[in-house]
């Protein structure tokens, strides 16, 4: 699943470790999500959306939306 996490993180000048700490996950998890190798669970996706104050679908794209 594609996502804009890396862009959103860069816009705030956050490192992966900074974002990981704010989400209470490991830095490796942030890296895996950014590179599309791990799809976050629904609770984590909501957490990410709340952190960036954006709807989930503006951050994650499953390629199904028209």
């Amino acid at each position: 699943m594609k996502n804009r996490l890396k862009v959103l993180r860069a816009e705030r000048d956050w490192s992966q470790a900074e974002l990981a700490g704010r989400l209470d996950v490991s830095r490796q998890a942030v890296n895996a999500i950014e590179t599309g190798k791990h799809d976050p669970s629904l609770p984590l996706a909501f957490k990410i959306a709340r952190l960036f104050d954006m709807p989930i679908e503006d951050i994650f794209d499953d390629g199904e939306t028209a």
Binding site: A17, E18, A20, R22
Partner: peptide
Amino acid sequence: LGPGEARTRTR
């Protein structure tokens, strides 16, 4: 350290 980085270090 930012608050997130500090939490990551603790983890």
